[in-house]
């Protein structure tokens, strides 16, 4: 049962993050997702300090604000202060992450998370944090419900606003021409990314969130050219990663989050060489057809 809950948590994070990540990858904004998932740390720590407990709502608001603030600072530095784009990202999130780590080490006793947890989470402890009803029935771990709720929100968001999201990702010029504001959709997407990051943070840690945001969508992007299929593949790949990652970790008795990241790497390498081989074969076919055509016309 313990392993079931851990895999379920991992899979829920993988699917929620992956679905949003598809749009990040398409917009070539992976590193912004990377930045947000580091930068929410001070928000979480401050919220912990103010509220004195891990009340999910306070932490969610604190970190959500920080996430949006990060996007805003990066945009501001890039557009207004004319800092080069990649440097703006690098400076902003390392600064916020460093502040988070300093706050953590200053208030080590008062905050419920530590430096290790920040990096690789405590997914192994997810099954302990259960909800028990008044009559004493064990309903399962709390994070699973939170993540499940989040997944429903994200699914609704993507299904309802599929047109706006895909248009702003593929052709921002056309989108704004027909009256879809790219700015609003940019901030909505980033807001959801920060909320997802925060909800997943305690269970899986910063590194694995980036992994799930970018890993499965990139693999899916390699395998298909259609956005709908890309989203479906992302869901499948994310679940597979959670499953195999956990079992490898349990077998070797090492970090679960780390193993999930490594599993992503393995699947990526396999699909990379698969598509690489395929495209080469296809190119060869194309060349053959082209050379044979003129002969026929003559």
């Amino acid at each position: 049962m313990i392993s079931f809950w851990i895999i379920l948590t991992g899979a829920l994070v993988a699917v929620s993050a992956g679905l949003l990540g598809c749009f990040l990858v398409l917009r070539r904004m992976s590193m912004v997702g990377d930045a947000i998932s580091h930068a929410v740390l001070p928000g979480i720590v401050i919220a912990f300090l103010i509220s004195g407990n891990r009340e999910p709502l306070t932490v969610l608001i604190g970190a959500g604000i920080l996430g949006l603030l990060t996007t805003f600072i990066i945009e501001y530095l890039h557009k207004k202060a004319k800092v080069q784009g990649d440097a703006a990202i690098g400076v902003t999130y390392t600064f916020l992450f460093a502040i988070g780590i300093i706050l953590l080490s200053l208030f080590a006793g008062q905050v419920d998370i530590d430096q290790d947890c920040v990096l690789y989470g405590e997914i192994a402890y997810v099954p302990i944090d259960t909800i028990i009803t008044a009559s004493g029935v064990n309903l399962g771990p709390k994070p699973v419900y939170l993540l499940g709720g989040l997944l429903v929100v994200i699914l609704l968001f993507i299904v309802v606003f599929y047109k706006q999201l895909s248009l702003t990702a593929f052709d921002p010029g056309f989108a704004s021409a027909i009256g879809i504001s790219t700015v609003i959709w940019h901030y909505l997407l980033m807001g959801l990314v920060s909320v997802t990051t925060v909800v997943s943070f305690q269970s899986v840690g910063a590194i694995l969130i980036i992994n799930f945001l970018i890993g499965p969508p990139s693999i899916a992007y390699l395998l298909t050219g259609s956005l709908k299929r890309m989203l479906i593949y992302t869901v499948i790949i994310g679940t597979l990663i959670a499953f195999f990652g956990y079992h490898i970790a349990a077998y070797l008795n090492v970090s679960i989050a780390g193993c999930m990241a490594v599993t992503t790497g393995i699947i990526f390498v396999i699909s990379f060489f698969y598509t690489h081989y395929n495209t080469r074969v296809r190119k060869k076919d194309l060349v053959m057809n082209k050379t044979s055509q003129p002969v026929e016309t003559i």
Partner: peptide, 18 residues
């Protein structure tokens, strides 16, 4: 950008595993 993110997390994940 995606390539950088993937390599970063996979390598770091491997490091954490070790």
């Amino acid at each position: 950008d995606a390539a950088i993110s993937i390599i970063l997390t996979v390598f770091f994940g491997l490091g954490i595993v070790m």
